[in-house]
Design a binder for these strands. Structure first.
Lengths: 104, 104
DNA sequence: TATTTGCGCAACCGATTAGTTGCATTTATA
DNA sequence: TATAAATGCAACTAATCGGTTGCGCAAATA
């Protein structure tokens, strides 16, 4: 089961879930109200997000609050970093950019 | 057919292809030598990358050189931007961060 | 205590995915 | 000109994906 951050954010519903719980921790039921799918479908998305540590849970009685774990997003940012220089004008030393890409 | 940038980069082979052609434009055959799959499989990945404009082609006789199109990667960067403040310590005004997220 | 609520888990289903093989077409080469 | 090389396209396949329904269990509530 491939379960990395890139695969996790490839689904638009999961990106929407991330955007919601980034604002505040939420329960599966509360999350499901924002979508046209069942609570179970949302729970499946949460499970995927939890498995790749983009989300962590906090039990409170019978409710489970899911929190956003921003540190895991760094992985994506770090991958992007290798290419950022290629689209940002302020980098002029293209040679160094390419060198950096090679030593990834 | 959902064909957005996020779905495109969700596959590890496609991310590897991007990393390769970011260094220099390559033909499908040249690319395929770097992987354990067939040339056709690589071509299918290239097609997906082309459809979401992460890659553009340049015909040269019977060969086709595929180039990386970095501007399209901005989309991912812009999405990340909304969350970046959440993992970077230098941002202290969390209220503004959350406000920004709400107005996405 | 009986019932409702919140949740995870399992089974199932149709669509998509990533791979394969085979073939047709165009360009380069012997 | 005949042949080889580079590529795209189509058909097929097993695995995965995103969704569903049904269930069981623990916690809250009437």
């Amino acid at each position: 089961m491939r379960r990395d951050v890139f695969q996790a954010i490839s689904d638009p519903t999961r990106r929407a879930i991330i955007a919601l719980i980034a604002l505040q921790a939420m329960t599966p039921n509360a999350l499901a109200e924002h979508f046209d799918t069942s609570r179970q479908a949302v729970s499946k998305h949460i499970k995927i997000l939890t498995e790749c540590e983009l989300v962590r849970q906090e039990q409170s009685g019978r409710e489970i609050y899911y929190h956003f774990n921003p540190t895991k997003m760094k992985e994506i940012d770090q991958w992007l970093e290798k290419f950022r220089a290629l689209w940002e004008d302020r980098f002029s030393q293209l040679d160094n950019v390419l060198l950096n890409l090679k030593n990834k």
